[in-house]
Design a protein around this nucleic acid. Structure first.
Length: 641
DNA sequence: ACAAAGTGTTTTTTT
DNA sequence: AACACTTTGT
């Protein structure tokens, strides 16, 4: 079997292996002693690591170690699985930068991309009862669809099951029931044992096992992939041979379906490295297993390692984080801060305000003053809230604008996308790169590099000098044309859609679309270009020149406003955690564990300063536990009115 | 026609 | 908890 990986591997004699004990980390000073142990452990490994421990960096170094020492010899590969596309791309890039000569043997993709690729390639090998009669379509069932399905089923279910079927929870149906149901090789007719199996089988009948196009969502694709690897031993063997090493990032977010898939493919014979932090599990409502990391260690008989260094936060903030971490996991070891401590300011405070307006004004003034008195820039500050980011945006935008400081709402809806996703998409990066090159007459080397690398891939010129030169010349021309075009069009009067169209006319947009489809599957080309146009329209409406419009589009140097969920994995010098009150944290009492984790994730983004805000410190209300933790950590309360 | 009562949503990922 | 939206009752 060939071509299981996404990219081609480099030839075997590109480099000679480095002896294992002579190997040194690349691009970083050193690793902590426990990380060294975990890195050298070639079995199943569970790495537990808190905020700022450098989980992704650890995986990148472990990959470099395996590839350079020949522990993972050519042509074998490492498979890295992440949950978010963005995380998969970041990890892939990091490894490619560390070990370019082996980059092709590090395959980094999302869980869903991996399972879908298996179903797409090997659907013909599915057992007869599960064979697809037509091309499937991806349709995620809405809550309403699931609810009405279960409602109807309660009436049609056989007598002894009706009561139980009626009691099934629609919200948990897909993740917990469909997700954990292993598809039987042959579908039994009648004789249902229990309500769950009956309901799930009927779900498959209604969406998949029926005439017409099957409707699948990612949970169902996962189940088909699990059935494939369970039923087709050759496929299982091929996967294990191709990928003797498997990395899974953010393991605490693993769902039941994903866990059982991993066990089915790599349960033995492959060495799986799971990295995660149970204390940062904030996706439980989306089906994340409660004890995924612990279960992994047990099921895969993995050796556990706990990283204890924190490269992000000052010692005082690590101490504060430890108080909350201990509530989530009583045996947590206090991390050691490896961040350079700054002095001159208090590490943490809880501010109370009488009104949202006063809060926004005070904080905007405070940020402006802090920037004026330091070498910090707006991008060093983040405003984090639990939810309803929309409510904060106008207030803070206007107050910050008074000091000429921009605000970027990463949670904002742009067309059919979120701003954070748009700014990170491959297509948007390329389009903005082209505009920037056209804008700057002398050109920016890094942007040129970025754009031309992408265009080389678009035109399949990666290993061909002549074709590369042609792409380079073409880019010079495109840049010139675009520059002339922009000169003759004003940002205020030109519809942004025309700018996008002009660019797509200048580059080979068909080739670009094909490239995007193969390189970043899941990135919907027209969705991104529409969102790009919408954002550019907004950004250019008040701009006096194109440069200003592009700055406004990217908002690279701006105070960032985002949800605690969206802030996961990010860090800022100063974090304002807004709205520690019941209106934002109404769901806290439904699930205090997950609520505390969300709190922990948000506040652990801060490197040097953390300021929490509320309207009233209510030490007896529903959020008493949160305020008590802050009190225990010695966070001073300051009434700012 | 309008008010009262009921329901859904909020945090979000994946091709 | 608080809001937006829909259904029901007079």
């Amino acid at each position: 079997m060939s071509g299981l990986g996404a990219s081609r591997a480099t030839s075997p004699n590109a480099t000679s292996p480095v002896p294992a004990d002579a190997w040194r980390p690349i691009g970083i000073e050193d690793l902590e002693p426990v990380a060294w142990e975990a890195l050298r452990d070639s079995g199943n490994v569970a790495v537990v690591a808190g905020p700022g421990a450098g989980k992704t960096e650890f995986l990148a170094q472990r990959a470099a170690y395996f590839l350079q020492t020949g522990i993972c010899p050519w042509p074998q590969r490492i498979l890295a699985i992440s949950f978010k596309r963005d995380a998969a791309v970041n990890l892939g890039r990091r490894v490619a930068a560390r070990v370019p000569e082996h980059g092709g043997r590090f395959v980094s993709m999302t869980f869903d991309a991996f399972t879908k690729s298996l179903v797409d390639r090997f659907a013909a090998a599915l057992p007869a009862d599960w064979r697809m009669n037509d091309e499937y379509e991806i349709r995620t069932a809405t809550g309403v669809e699931v609810r009405s399905f279960l409602n109807d089923l309660a009436f049609t279910a056989p007598q002894p099951l009706t009561r139980e079927v009626a009691r099934l929870q629609p919200a948990r149906f897909m993740t917990d029931l469909v997700g954990r149901w292993r598809l039987p090789t042959t579908i039994p007719i009648g004789d249902e044992i229990d309500a769950t199996s009956y309901a799930v089988r009927e779900w498959w009948r209604a969406r998949y096992l029926r005439p017409g196009r099957p409707k699948l969502d990612f949970v169902m694709i996962n189940r088909l992939a699990e059935l494939l690897v369970r039923e087709v031993p050759q496929l299982r063997r091929a996967l294990r041979m191709t990928y003797p090493w498997v990395f899974v990032d953010e393991f605490q977010d693993t769902t039941g379906a994903q866990f059982s898939f991993l066990a089915a493919v790599f349960g033995d014979k492959a060495a799986v490295t799971a990295v995660g932090d149970t204390k940062q599990r904030i996706m439980g409502w989306a089906g994340a297993l409660p004890q995924a990391v612990q279960r992994f260690a047990e099921t895969f008989d993995a050796t556990s390692y706990s990283l204890a260094w924190n490269f992000r936060s000052s010692d005082a903030l690590v101490e504060l984080q430890h108080v909350i971490a201990s509530k989530l996991e009583p045996n947590t070891v206090r991390a050691t801060s490896k961040a350079t401590a700054e002095d001159g300011h208090d590490p943490a405070a809880l501010w109370t305000f009488r009104s949202p307006e006063r809060e926004a004004t005070f904080i905007a003034d405070w940020i402006a003053r802090d920037i004026a008195n330091s070498d910090r820039s707006p991008a060093d500050f983040a405003l984090i809230a639990r939810q309803k980011i929309k409510d904060f945006e106008p207030l803070f935008r206007s107050r910050l604008a008074a000091h000429c400081i921009k605000l970027r709402n990463d949670d904002a809806q742009v067309g059919k996308m979120r701003l954070q996703d748009l700014l990170k998409s491959e297509t948007a990066r390329l389009l903005m790169g082209l505009l920037r090159l056209a804008q700057h007459p002398q050109g920016l080397a890094s942007i040129w590099q970025d754009v031309s690398t992408t265009l080389e891939r678009v035109h399949g010129a990666a290993d061909d000098d002549v074709a590369q030169r042609r792409v380079g010349e073409h880019l010079t021309q495109v840049t010139e044309w675009l520059r002339t075009w922009l000169r003759s069009h004003s940002p205020v009067t030109t519809p942004a859609a025309d700018v996008v169209q002009e660019m797509l006319d200048l580059v080979d947009s068909a080739a670009l679309q094909r490239y995007i489809k193969s390189a970043v599957p899941g990135e919907d080309f027209s969705l991104v270009t529409d969102a790009f146009a919408a954002r550019l329209e907004e950004a250019s409406s008040s701009a006096t020149n194109w440069g200003e419009a592009f700055d406004e589009f990217e908002c690279a140097d701006a105070v960032v406003l985002l949800t605690a969920h969206r802030s996961k994995g990010l860090e800022y010098h100063t974090v304002f955690f807004l709205g520690i009150h019941e209106r934002q944290w109404w769901s806290y009492q439904n699930d205090p564990r997950e609520g505390t984790s969300t709190f922990f994730v948000g506040l652990s983004r801060a490197a040097q300063r953390l300021i929490l805000t509320t309207d009233r410190v209510d030490s007896t209300g529903p959020l008493a536990a949160l305020f008590a933790m802050l009190k225990e950590a010695g966070v001073p309360e300051v009434a700012q009115d």
